[in-house]
Computed example of a mutant assay.
Amino acid sequence: MSTHVKKPGWFTVNVLNRLVAWLTRRGLSVWGSRVLAVRGRKSGQWRTTPVNLMTLDGARYLVAPRGHVQWTHNMRAAGGGELHLGKNVEVFTATEVADDDKPPLLRAYLKRWKAEVGVFFDGVGPGSSDEELRRIASDHPVFRITVTN
């Protein structure tokens, strides 16, 4: 597993993420946004971050465009979490997707959110070959989520 991480810039952390989280907490989804809550693997405390929830062929996925970040490590340890949209809370379990199965998921994710997150994919986009998508697959964790409540 790669330790590839692309840290968001000041504007993303202090303005964009906060604005999307604020709107999402009030029930306004911005292009599929949710607030992800997952228990910290060390502290056990709930940690939250805005995420893009992708639905493809009836299944739901969380993709980590910035790589192996804190929420992905916590998700592996916790095995699931909660997705918040306003007062609606979905409790879910998560299964990590194998790298070989990621190309169609990464392609669909980039089709929808490339303008927002494309810079984190090393020049790979929705029109890239499966080979190019496989090359970056290990840098971008993907979790299939199953709602349990």
Rank of each mutant, 00 (worst) to 15 (best):
L56H: 03
W22D: 00
V30K: 04
Y61E: 00
R76P: 05
V63C: 08
A21N: 02
A21F: 05
R112L: 14
N149A: 03
V69R: 06
A137L: 10
E96W: 05
G40S: 03
G9F: 15
R76M: 11
R112P: 13
R39S: 07
R41N: 10
T93V: 08
T55F: 03
R135C: 07
V142R: 10
D122I: 15
V15K: 02
V35Y: 00
R134K: 14
W71C: 04
R112K: 15
L85W: 02
V30T: 05
K114V: 15
E116F: 09
G44L: 12
V117A: 01
L28P: 03
D100S: 15
N74I: 08
K111A: 11
T146M: 01
D99Q: 07
G9K: 10
F11Q: 04
A115Q: 12
P103W: 07
G9V: 13
G27P: 12
T49P: 10
R112W: 01
V35P: 03
G81A: 02
G125H: 13
N88Y: 03
W10F: 01
H84N: 04
P104A: 05
R39T: 11
G44E: 11
W10T: 13
S138G: 08
H4S: 15
D99H: 04
G40D: 15
G127A: 09
H73Y: 11
I136T: 01
T95D: 10
A108V: 10
G58F: 06
D130T: 03
A108Y: 04
T146A: 12
A78Y: 01
R144K: 05
R107S: 01
L85M: 08
A98C: 00
H84K: 13
L36P: 10
V13L: 08
W71S: 03
D57M: 12
S2W: 03
G86Y: 05
I145W: 02
T148V: 12
